[in-house]
Amino acid sequence: MTALVVQGLSKSFGGLRVTANVSLTVAPGERRLIIGPNGAGKTTLFNLITGNITPDSGSISLFGRDITRVPSHRRPHLGLARTYQIITLFPHDTILRNVTLALLGLLPLRWNPLVDLDRKEAIVARAREALARVGLDNIAERPLSQTSYGERRRVEIAMALAQNPKVLLLDEPYAGLSIDERQDVQKLLEKIPRDVTIVMIEHNMDVALDFADRITLLHFGEVIVEGTRAEVVADPRTREVYLGD
Protein backbone atom coordinates (compact mmCIF):
# COMPACT_ATOMS: atom_id res chain seq x y z
CA MET A 1 0.00 0.00 0.00
CA THR A 2 1.20 3.49 -0.80
CA ALA A 3 -0.03 6.75 0.71
CA LEU A 4 0.37 9.08 -2.24
CA VAL A 5 1.25 8.27 -5.82
CA VAL A 6 1.77 10.92 -8.46
CA GLN A 7 2.29 9.60 -11.95
CA GLY A 8 3.48 11.53 -15.00
CA LEU A 9 1.93 14.78 -13.84
CA SER A 10 2.31 17.73 -16.23
CA LYS A 11 0.98 21.26 -16.31
CA SER A 12 1.72 24.25 -18.52
CA PHE A 13 0.66 27.87 -18.22
CA GLY A 14 0.72 29.56 -21.58
CA GLY A 15 3.92 28.16 -23.05
CA LEU A 16 5.59 27.64 -19.71
CA ARG A 17 5.84 24.10 -18.37
CA VAL A 18 5.62 24.44 -14.60
CA THR A 19 5.26 20.75 -13.89
CA ALA A 20 6.94 18.34 -16.27
CA ASN A 21 6.17 14.64 -16.06
CA VAL A 22 6.53 14.44 -12.28
CA SER A 23 6.19 11.05 -10.60
CA LEU A 24 6.36 10.44 -6.87
CA THR A 25 5.58 7.51 -4.62
CA VAL A 26 5.23 8.22 -0.92
CA ALA A 27 4.89 5.33 1.53
CA PRO A 28 2.49 5.46 4.50
CA GLY A 29 4.04 7.24 7.46
CA GLU A 30 6.91 8.53 5.36
CA ARG A 31 8.39 12.02 5.77
CA ARG A 32 9.09 13.28 2.28
CA LEU A 33 10.92 16.49 1.67
CA ILE A 34 10.54 18.29 -1.65
CA ILE A 35 13.31 20.76 -2.29
CA GLY A 36 14.29 22.98 -5.16
CA PRO A 37 15.12 26.58 -5.88
CA ASN A 38 12.46 29.26 -6.26
CA GLY A 39 10.30 28.66 -9.28
CA ALA A 40 11.00 24.92 -9.32
CA GLY A 41 7.26 24.24 -9.31
CA LYS A 42 6.98 22.97 -5.73
CA THR A 43 3.84 24.88 -4.76
CA THR A 44 2.29 24.14 -8.16
CA LEU A 45 2.81 20.47 -7.45
CA PHE A 46 0.88 20.88 -4.17
CA ASN A 47 -1.86 22.78 -5.98
CA LEU A 48 -2.11 19.91 -8.45
CA ILE A 49 -2.28 17.33 -5.67
CA THR A 50 -5.00 19.26 -3.81
CA GLY A 51 -6.89 19.89 -7.02
CA ASN A 52 -6.71 23.68 -7.04
CA ILE A 53 -5.16 23.30 -10.47
CA THR A 54 -6.20 20.65 -12.98
CA PRO A 55 -3.27 18.81 -14.56
CA ASP A 56 -2.86 18.62 -18.33
CA SER A 57 -1.91 14.97 -18.00
CA GLY A 58 -0.97 12.40 -15.40
CA SER A 59 -2.73 11.00 -12.37
CA ILE A 60 -2.79 11.31 -8.59
CA SER A 61 -3.90 8.63 -6.19
CA LEU A 62 -4.37 8.58 -2.46
CA PHE A 63 -4.13 5.21 -0.72
CA GLY A 64 -4.80 3.42 -3.97
CA ARG A 65 -7.76 5.55 -4.94
CA ASP A 66 -7.46 7.64 -8.10
CA ILE A 67 -8.34 11.20 -7.11
CA THR A 68 -7.30 12.98 -10.32
CA ARG A 69 -10.91 13.80 -11.14
CA VAL A 70 -12.19 14.24 -7.59
CA PRO A 71 -13.25 17.89 -6.99
CA SER A 72 -10.74 19.71 -4.82
CA HIS A 73 -13.23 20.31 -2.00
CA ARG A 74 -13.84 16.54 -1.70
CA ARG A 75 -10.16 15.70 -1.26
CA PRO A 76 -9.91 16.84 2.38
CA HIS A 77 -12.73 14.39 3.10
CA LEU A 78 -10.48 11.63 1.79
CA GLY A 79 -7.74 12.50 4.28
CA LEU A 80 -5.70 15.13 2.44
CA ALA A 81 -4.81 18.35 4.28
CA ARG A 82 -2.41 21.16 3.52
CA THR A 83 -0.90 24.32 4.94
CA TYR A 84 -0.02 27.39 2.94
CA GLN A 85 3.27 29.14 2.35
CA ILE A 86 1.59 32.49 2.41
CA ILE A 87 -0.58 32.37 5.48
CA THR A 88 -4.25 32.37 4.52
CA LEU A 89 -6.30 32.47 7.68
CA PHE A 90 -9.52 34.23 8.63
CA PRO A 91 -8.36 37.58 9.99
CA HIS A 92 -11.68 38.73 11.48
CA ASP A 93 -12.12 35.65 13.62
CA THR A 94 -10.50 34.31 16.77
CA ILE A 95 -7.88 31.59 16.68
CA LEU A 96 -10.45 29.19 18.07
CA ARG A 97 -12.92 30.02 15.29
CA ASN A 98 -10.22 29.48 12.69
CA VAL A 99 -9.61 25.97 13.95
CA THR A 100 -13.34 25.35 14.38
CA LEU A 101 -13.81 26.15 10.70
CA ALA A 102 -11.18 23.55 9.85
CA LEU A 103 -13.03 20.92 11.87
CA LEU A 104 -16.40 21.98 10.50
CA GLY A 105 -15.18 21.55 6.93
CA LEU A 106 -15.34 17.77 7.30
CA LEU A 107 -18.65 17.59 9.17
CA PRO A 108 -22.16 17.56 7.71
CA LEU A 109 -22.93 20.12 10.41
CA ARG A 110 -21.41 22.78 8.15
CA TRP A 111 -24.65 22.93 6.15
CA ASN A 112 -26.81 23.55 9.21
CA PRO A 113 -28.29 27.06 9.20
CA LEU A 114 -30.35 26.65 12.36
CA VAL A 115 -28.13 25.93 15.35
CA ASP A 116 -25.74 28.20 17.21
CA LEU A 117 -22.20 27.16 16.33
CA ASP A 118 -20.80 28.46 19.63
CA ARG A 119 -23.13 26.11 21.50
CA LYS A 120 -21.84 23.05 19.67
CA GLU A 121 -19.56 22.29 22.58
CA ALA A 122 -18.18 19.02 21.24
CA ILE A 123 -16.68 20.67 18.21
CA VAL A 124 -15.42 23.69 20.13
CA ALA A 125 -13.75 21.31 22.60
CA ARG A 126 -12.06 19.47 19.74
CA ALA A 127 -10.82 22.77 18.37
CA ARG A 128 -9.32 23.61 21.78
CA GLU A 129 -7.65 20.21 21.83
CA ALA A 130 -6.08 20.87 18.44
CA LEU A 131 -4.86 24.22 19.71
CA ALA A 132 -3.41 22.53 22.79
CA ARG A 133 -1.37 20.28 20.50
CA VAL A 134 0.37 23.36 19.11
CA GLY A 135 0.49 25.13 22.46
CA LEU A 136 -1.93 27.91 21.66
CA ASP A 137 -4.88 26.92 23.87
CA ASN A 138 -4.07 29.75 26.28
CA ILE A 139 -4.76 32.42 23.63
CA ALA A 140 -7.62 30.63 21.86
CA GLU A 141 -10.00 33.55 22.19
CA ARG A 142 -7.58 36.08 20.72
CA PRO A 143 -8.55 37.59 17.37
CA LEU A 144 -6.23 36.37 14.67
CA SER A 145 -5.32 39.92 13.70
CA GLN A 146 -3.64 40.31 17.10
CA THR A 147 -1.31 37.34 16.83
CA SER A 148 2.34 37.11 15.81
CA TYR A 149 3.59 35.53 12.62
CA GLY A 150 4.94 32.50 14.46
CA GLU A 151 1.61 31.99 16.22
CA ARG A 152 -0.22 32.15 12.91
CA ARG A 153 2.06 29.51 11.47
CA ARG A 154 1.10 27.27 14.39
CA VAL A 155 -2.58 28.03 13.83
CA GLU A 156 -2.08 26.88 10.23
CA ILE A 157 -0.64 23.59 11.47
CA ALA A 158 -3.33 23.20 14.13
CA MET A 159 -5.99 23.61 11.45
CA ALA A 160 -4.43 20.94 9.28
CA LEU A 161 -3.96 18.55 12.22
CA ALA A 162 -7.50 19.15 13.44
CA GLN A 163 -8.73 17.50 10.27
CA ASN A 164 -6.92 14.27 11.25
CA PRO A 165 -5.37 13.92 7.82
CA LYS A 166 -3.79 10.74 6.52
CA VAL A 167 -1.57 12.76 4.19
CA LEU A 168 -0.43 16.22 5.24
CA LEU A 169 1.13 18.65 2.78
CA LEU A 170 3.25 21.33 4.44
CA ASP A 171 4.23 24.26 2.23
CA GLU A 172 7.38 25.88 3.69
CA PRO A 173 6.27 25.70 7.32
CA TYR A 174 9.44 27.50 8.45
CA ALA A 175 9.23 30.42 6.04
CA GLY A 176 9.55 33.81 7.70
CA LEU A 177 10.07 32.44 11.21
CA SER A 178 12.72 33.46 13.72
CA ILE A 179 15.12 30.81 14.98
CA ASP A 180 13.13 30.31 18.19
CA GLU A 181 9.85 30.08 16.38
CA ARG A 182 11.39 27.68 13.93
CA GLN A 183 12.46 25.36 16.72
CA ASP A 184 8.95 25.46 18.18
CA VAL A 185 7.47 24.45 14.85
CA GLN A 186 10.15 21.80 14.38
CA LYS A 187 9.30 20.16 17.71
CA LEU A 188 5.67 20.32 16.83
CA LEU A 189 6.18 18.55 13.53
CA GLU A 190 8.33 15.88 15.14
CA LYS A 191 5.49 15.08 17.54
CA ILE A 192 3.08 14.27 14.72
CA PRO A 193 2.50 10.50 14.91
CA ARG A 194 3.66 8.21 12.15
CA ASP A 195 0.14 7.35 11.02
CA VAL A 196 0.22 10.69 9.29
CA THR A 197 2.20 10.77 6.06
CA ILE A 198 3.91 14.11 5.54
CA VAL A 199 5.11 15.78 2.37
CA MET A 200 6.98 18.99 3.08
CA ILE A 201 8.19 21.66 0.71
CA GLU A 202 11.28 23.53 1.76
CA HIS A 203 13.21 26.04 -0.22
CA ASN A 204 16.16 25.98 2.14
CA MET A 205 17.54 22.45 2.23
CA ASP A 206 19.44 22.64 5.53
CA VAL A 207 16.42 23.54 7.61
CA ALA A 208 14.48 20.35 7.13
CA LEU A 209 17.07 17.73 6.30
CA ASP A 210 16.84 15.93 9.62
CA PHE A 211 13.13 15.61 9.30
CA ALA A 212 13.12 13.78 5.98
CA ASP A 213 13.19 10.06 5.26
CA ARG A 214 13.44 10.66 1.54
CA ILE A 215 14.06 13.75 -0.53
CA THR A 216 12.88 14.76 -3.99
CA LEU A 217 14.70 17.55 -5.79
CA LEU A 218 12.65 19.56 -8.28
CA HIS A 219 14.08 21.94 -10.83
CA PHE A 220 12.15 23.73 -13.58
CA GLY A 221 9.19 21.50 -12.88
CA GLU A 222 11.09 18.24 -13.24
CA VAL A 223 12.24 15.65 -10.75
CA ILE A 224 16.04 15.83 -10.88
CA VAL A 225 17.05 13.52 -8.06
CA GLU A 226 15.16 11.32 -5.64
CA GLY A 227 16.50 9.17 -2.87
CA THR A 228 17.42 8.96 0.78
CA ARG A 229 18.84 11.95 2.58
CA ALA A 230 22.41 10.80 2.06
CA GLU A 231 21.90 9.91 -1.59
CA VAL A 232 20.44 13.27 -2.51
CA VAL A 233 22.99 15.26 -0.57
CA ALA A 234 25.82 13.31 -2.19
CA ASP A 235 24.41 13.54 -5.71
CA PRO A 236 26.40 15.93 -7.95
CA ARG A 237 23.18 17.14 -9.61
CA THR A 238 22.00 18.51 -6.28
CA ARG A 239 25.13 20.61 -6.09
CA GLU A 240 24.63 21.72 -9.63
CA VAL A 241 21.08 22.90 -8.97
CA TYR A 242 21.92 24.67 -5.76
CA LEU A 243 25.36 26.00 -6.57
CA GLY A 244 25.49 25.92 -10.34
CA ASP A 245 23.64 29.13 -10.96
Partner: peptide
Protein backbone atom coordinates in the same frame (compact mmCIF):
# COMPACT_ATOMS: atom_id res chain seq x y z
CA UNK B 1 -29.89 36.29 13.68
CA UNK B 2 -30.03 32.49 13.72
CA UNK B 3 -28.38 32.20 10.31
CA UNK B 4 -25.46 34.45 11.22
CA UNK B 5 -24.58 32.39 14.29
CA UNK B 6 -25.08 29.04 12.60
CA UNK B 7 -22.38 26.79 11.14
CA UNK B 8 -23.69 27.57 7.68
CA UNK B 9 -23.39 31.29 8.39
CA UNK B 10 -19.82 30.77 9.54
CA UNK B 11 -19.11 28.78 6.38
CA UNK B 12 -20.54 31.54 4.21
CA UNK B 13 -18.40 34.21 5.86
CA UNK B 14 -15.42 31.91 5.42
CA UNK B 15 -16.04 31.76 1.67
CA UNK B 16 -16.17 35.56 1.67
CA UNK B 17 -12.79 35.95 3.40
CA UNK B 18 -10.79 33.02 2.05
CA UNK B 19 -12.59 31.09 -0.69
CA UNK B 20 -9.52 29.06 -1.69
CA UNK B 21 -8.74 28.13 1.87
CA UNK B 22 -12.35 27.12 2.47
CA UNK B 23 -12.15 24.88 -0.57
CA UNK B 24 -8.97 23.29 0.78
CA UNK B 25 -10.70 22.70 4.11
CA UNK B 26 -13.39 20.63 2.42
CA UNK B 27 -16.12 23.19 1.83
CA UNK B 28 -17.99 23.27 -1.47
CA UNK B 29 -17.68 27.01 -1.96
Amino acid sequence: AVFVRSPFGASLRGTRDQPLRMNALGYNV
